[in-house]
Design a protein around this nucleic acid. Sequence first.
RNA 1: CGGGCUGUGGCGCAGUUUGGUUAGCGCACUGGUCUGGGGGACCAGGGGUCGGAGGUUCAAAUCCUCUCAGCCCGACCA
Length: 569
Amino acid sequence: MRWSAAFIPTLRDAPADAEAASHQLLVRGGFIRQLHAGHYSLLPLGLRVHEKVAQIVREEIDAIGGQEFLLPAMHPASIWKQSGRWEAMGDEMFRLQDRGGADLALGMTHEEVFSHLATTLHSYKELPQVWYQIQMKFRDEPRPKSGLLRVREFAMKDSYSFDLDDEGLDAAFDAHHRAYVKIFDRLGLEAMPVQASSGAMGGSASIEFMVTSPAGEDDVLVCQSCTYRANVERGTSRLEPVLGSPSDEDVERFPTPGVRTITELENVEESAQAVNQIKTMVMVLDGEVTLALLRGDHQLNLQKLQDSSGAVDVRPATPEEAFEALGARPGSLGAVGVDGIAVFCDVALKERTGMVTGANEDDWHLRGVSVERDIDVNSWVDIREVQDGETCAECGGRLEIVRCIEAGHIFKLGRKYSTAMGISVLDSQGKAQTPTMGSYGIGIGRAVAAIAENHHDDSGLCWPLAVAPYHLLVTVLDVDDPEAMALADSVADLCGAAGLDVLVDDRDARPGVKFADSELIGIPYRLTIGSRSLSNGQVEFTPRVSGETAMLGKESCVEAVLDTILSTK
RNA sequence: CGGGCUGUGGCGCAGUUUGGUUAGCGCACUGGUCUGGGGGACCAGGGGUCGGAGGUUCAAAUCCUCUCAGCCCGACCA
């Protein structure tokens, strides 16, 4: 490809609204352009990277026996109603109607469609199956952001396994785990597997593959001493026991005029250090007012509450709702004596005595509260969010919180969808069995962005060879010099014949422009042909990452270039 | 969904407070001359219904109302 004929609209300035490095560089380098919020056009350069990522994913899923499909992106409401997710998915699903008024949805994921197809399976002899596709997903994200990192329309590789029993599911899950490790390795992404919440999908084991980046949206607990890694939506830590006061203490009301916060209460009541307070949070779970109790110095993790309650929709109550439920305003709320409202209590409050909490009357609190004696707890749950620096539950080491991009997610679905969609096979005894499923996703565009986040410098992108839009850029400095152009063409032909993707920068532009552009778009290797070194029979070979130039003889340069590139390929 | 901010040529911005010539600057783009190894210089050009609609006014990018779009933060700190 000749640059003079290519559409590579590079920009000197990034759009003002781009913050993430990948966002800025992908736009500046002419890889992507935004159509509207959360929807990006992939330009030729961007598509080349996208395709290379997809191909690596395809090869590794094929290698574990995956079979590729291409399913519709637009689905009838019926299959989503059958699985129960027509309601459960809420506003995140794009919905529309056809001319006949039939309800349709744009697929956010494809459990339903693959499960529907799997009703064609009838015998245990047909199992196991691993089915996958690389297809656009549509999600009406409340807040698309950061270029390709969070969008509303994106290509995703999603695979699904169907097995007769748990051993089979374990094997399919482990095979995907290994495949994902290989995929991210080939993509040049250091992705760590971490324990994760299963979220709305349900299921048991759930592992996310996380890439460290400040542009990410997930916080991961990383133990500095052992291999424990978990999303904060799932992770726990070891808590030092708190010495309580005697358990025979009586509950006592005391006035706290004007006190509204935990810190203020600490200042007016000697026994009320935050660890001795009960934080009462009024939440609304699927429309039901509910209390979530935490230690005063702890913080609620919404996802944990959602997971442990099984609720679909979780939000904090408005002050009005809280007042209606408990008769006091925020700042004086408590769960003592509360009846008829579900109470979820964090396990850190187990066996705690001598606690302080709101009295459900403005400007009054209670002391001497024994959690288990005085509060009617419906369920003990882990709903607190671990903070940076806490102690690892596995080894006692220090946990650090690391900002990450979720690049892949694998989990065991179990029989939820196979049951709902009516998949059934006969086992070797002739008895009907419901297969168990796994679901495994990688966002292709997000992987492109994650690679850009992790592989760039001040001058621009530095694509790993495996995903680079071109392997080699031949930069001709004097395009009017017939010898230079002839050499460039011959290098391009020979390297192309050897399997390399080659871009020739034949633009009549100043060297500075060409060098700056070459570094911006991040082709891994550059061969510079200029009359100055060419007069000595030499050309220059520069790896993008090191920037260190080696001189090569013009006759031997093709061989040397191929040696270098093919040996690292 | 709450809060904040922003919409002026392909990109980055000024002008809006205090309404008043032909809406301006840098980059990019077109033609030309020079230049020729790190975003070069000069000359001459093209491109904008100032997000949209309505209103106030002799006069609106500027004031008012509505609306659309985009970005950031928040959506647990009781």
